[in-house]
Design a protein around this nucleic acid. Structure first.
Lengths: 165, 165
DNA sequence: TTGGAAAGTCAATAAGACTGACTTAAGCTG
DNA sequence: CAGCTTAAGTCAGTCTTATTGACTTTCCAA
């Protein structure tokens, strides 16, 4: 019976429990993106723009290459998004001081305003979920999510936390 | 100071904490979909096919309309995916007994085999994350995810659980 | 000074989604 | 029975986000 691990652990590692976790992730992620998606639907922007804006706000001065890796997209993909954001005056691209090949990205006033609008909506939902579930649940939530990341992404996640802390 | 809620709750409801939660969701979801995506990349299928297969397996005999709402896509979108799956012999579509307008969807042997392959990979990651985080964390994880869903989706999530339990 | 890295661009392609319009078949209801 | 509604399926066109591949410009560094 207790061939793999303790009885307590066996209880929640059944296929059924794991499937429920998978479905919870699926449905929750839909909720997670729903509010920003709604806001962006009106403008000429999509989820890709939101992600770029989020991470530029989070790590101001980040380079294009940095952002590329963080978002997990190709240069060409990001460039299209970035170009419209720069043209529309939401993002500023400054030539690097030390290395002039690099471009450092910053949100303009207008960019920060949109960022606030988007993240306000997303944080409101997050806050409600956190409140409903309680502090202990939140700690567990964070632990499981972190364990679910690829090693490389976990590294980047922590790097961002240092930044914002 | 304690104007909104208790001190204990204030601690983890700072903007910074919420932002970290948002980023954790983003990075974890990437990990969550990475394994099935890799498997499907070789074949002519994508994430949309995976989702259809998952839910048909989960609720065998479900109707097209049911699946539509569950996945949150349009009829035309689902139909393209479903058509290829039926053509390739992974999904079977049976005319309804009670209502002949309805089509009930089932996985064939081949469909079940692919489902197993995909969900094995996804469950392996889930299992590893659950093990690493521990039982208490898992309970919290589930609570927060559930609180994050839209009401309608939470209803559907519970309906599926009844089904599979 | 030359090789390689960072950024940017052009072109072609694909998956996955959308709207809108329309057909077919079948159920329901007055 | 006639007529409205519902479930499914299809055709056509569009959009966003992503891809690969090829190429240029700029510039750092050995």
């Amino acid at each position: 019976m207790a061939d793999v691990t303790t009885g307590e652990k066996l209880l929640f590692l059944t296929d059924e429990q794991l499937r429920q976790g998978i479905e919870a992730m699926f449905f929750a992620y839909r909720g997670f993106t729903a509010d920003p998606d709604r806001i962006l639907a009106g403008m000429a922007y999509g989820r890709a723009h939101h992600r770029a804006i989020h991470f530029i706000n989070r790590a101001p001065g980040t380079t294009v290459n940095n952002l590329l890796v963080l978002l997990g997209v190709t240069k060409q993909s990001l460039n299209r998004v970035l170009r419209t954001l720069i043209e529309d005056g939401l993002v500023e691209s400054r030539v690097g001081m030390a290395d002039k090949r690099e471009r450092h990205l910053y949100l303009t006033e207008a960019g920060q305003e949109l960022e606030r609008k988007l993240s306000d909506a997303q944080r409101a939902r997050m806050r409600a979920a956190y409140r409903a579930a309680g502090p202990q649940a939140v700690a567990g939530f964070r632990q499981v999510l972190e364990a679910m990341m690829d090693t490389e992404m976990r590294r980047k996640y922590h790097a961002l936390k240092e930044n914002g802390a």
